[in-house]
Computed example of a mutant assay.
Amino acid sequence: MARAADFAYFDHDDPIAMAHRGGAAYGPNVGLENTLGAFRRAVAMGYRYLETDVHATADGELVAFHDSRLDRVTTGRGAVAELPYAVVREARINGTDAVPLLTELLEEFPDARLNIDIKAWAALEPTVEVIRAHDAVERVCIGSFSERRVRAARRALGPRLATAAGQVGTGVLRYAPGLVSRWLHTPAPVLQIPVLHRLRGREIRLVTPGLLAAAHRLGKQVHVWFHPWSDESAEEMNRLLDLGVDGIVTDHIATLRDVLAERGHPLAAG
Rank of each mutant, 00 (worst) to 15 (best):
D6F: 09
A8F: 07
Y9D: 09
H12Y: 11
D13G: 14
I16L: 11
M18E: 12
T35I: 08
A38M: 04
R40F: 08
A42W: 00
V43Q: 02
V43L: 01
A44I: 09
G46D: 10
Y49P: 08
T52A: 03
T52D: 03
A58P: 04
D59L: 02
G60I: 05
L62M: 05
A64N: 00
H66S: 01
D71W: 07
T74P: 07
T74R: 05
G76L: 11
G76E: 01
R77G: 06
V80L: 14
Y85F: 15
Y85E: 05
Y85D: 06
A91S: 09
N94R: 06
G95N: 04
D97Q: 14
D97G: 11
D97M: 13
A98I: 10
A98V: 15
T103K: 10
L106E: 00
A112G: 04
R113P: 06
I116Q: 04
K119G: 09
A120E: 15
A120W: 04
W121C: 06
W121G: 13
E129N: 11
D135G: 11
A136I: 10
A136T: 10
A136R: 02
R139L: 06
R139F: 08
C141M: 14
C141R: 09
C141F: 04
S144F: 09
S144M: 10
F145W: 03
R149S: 12
V150Q: 07
A152Y: 07
R154A: 15
R155W: 12
L157Y: 00
G166I: 11
G166V: 12
V172Q: 12
G178C: 00
L179M: 13
R182G: 09
W183C: 13
H185K: 13
P187L: 05
P189Q: 08
Q192V: 15
I193V: 15
V195R: 08
G201R: 08
I204D: 11
R205Q: 13
R205F: 03
T208C: 05
T208P: 03
L211C: 11
A214S: 14
A215R: 08
V222H: 05
H227I: 11
H227E: 13
S230F: 07
E232W: 01
E236T: 14
N238Y: 04
D246P: 00
G247C: 01
T255F: 08
R257N: 15
D258V: 10
D258H: 14
A261N: 04
A261R: 14
E262C: 07
H265R: 03
G270P: 13
